[in-house]
Design a protein around this nucleic acid. Structure first.
Lengths: 116, 116
DNA sequence: CTGGATCCTTTAAGATACTG
DNA sequence: CAGTATCTTAAAGGATCCAG
């Protein structure tokens, strides 16, 4: 019945992948290329190492993000998007496009209403 | 900088609209047509009236859902998707399609890995 | 540098009883 | 019927300090 329109499990999955306060920030940052832990921490204003590592682990477990370690001193770790992670991009673009036009439309309606 | 890929505010907005435990259930139910409060409560297994009204109010405030009251005894209230709310459907389909194929791909990889 | 561990606050959600 | 109110629990998130 439910999958007549959308499959709830699949939807909950993508919301889990994108949800939370920081996942989108991490993903958009990684779309510019691979980054080290400290680079991510610097570029994502306000995030704590605890949150950063937690979100990265979830994205890694989901198969969106890849983690590579290098035996330098001190140790270096690089995070990047997987091939599969890159397939998220058009979906994000679609969502963003919808949200942008939707919010503009709502804005116009609010202004029109207050002008009455 | 950030809107080179996606606009965080717009993305947070759509995640807010779709996020939480029940919004998708409500939306998919309403895609079948307008429903009364009690009908929604019956069709969405496990939801409490408190959660239902809370999510409905958020969707209404966002302009996704419309609420109509009728002065019958007892009072009747009908919820439906707005015109703008209907524009969400293709976005949801896109998200679902991605999630489905992504999860199938990951499943294959896991099975392949365990076969090694 | 890359995290782990701990404690604390805030928010989301569930249960249940109640009102116009 | 269509919600409200209250109470409680669970989960998310933040702050800080510490270790390999």
């Amino acid at each position: 019945m439910e999958n007549c329109v959308i499959d709830i499990d699949d939807m909950q999955f993508i919301l889990q992948v994108l949800g939370g306060k920081w996942k989108l920030h991490i993903l958009t940052t990684l779309y510019f290329g691979k980054k080290r832990f400290k680079e991510l921490e610097r570029e994502i204003t306000g995030i704590s190492p605890k949150m950063l590592i937690k979100e990265l682990k979830e994205l890694e477990a989901a198969g969106i993000v890849d983690r590579q370690t290098f035996n330098t001193v001190p140790i270096t770790v690089e995070y990047s998007l997987t091939e599969d992670g890159l397939t998220l991009k058009p979906v994000l673009e679609h969502m963003k496009t919808w949200a942008t036009t939707f919010r503009e439309t709502q804005q116009v309606k609010t202004m029109t209403a207050s002008a009455l």
